[in-house]
Amino acid sequence: MEKTIAGKTIAVNEEGYLTDFKQWDKSIADVLAAEAEINLSPRHWEILGYLQNEYKNEVPLSIRKIGKSGVVDIKEFYQLFPKAPLKTATKIAGIPKPASCI
């Protein structure tokens, strides 16, 4: 599937997650954040950067790991990305939705 985000044609899956991280840039993040009713602050960007880095290092992401990462505690993670923070944050970061283990 394709979607036009910030004037660019971007490949996404049915749930709206980018399927090619190379197409991601900050303007896309801003649009995806706005869709989730989030205004990205410097703190948000820090966490998005951390998530992207973990993704590049092929570290499976989970709420538990993020809570223990020292980057952000779970409470704050929820304040920054309300409701389902990991799902929302990974979408804005342009990385795949973490596979919830079976």
């Binding site: 389902a84 799902k87 919830s100 283990c101 079976i102």
Partner: peptide
């Protein structure tokens, strides 16, 4: 459930 739905698939 912590998942988005009843099951993982």
């Amino acid at each position: 459930t912590p998942l988005s739905g009843a099951f993982t698939k």
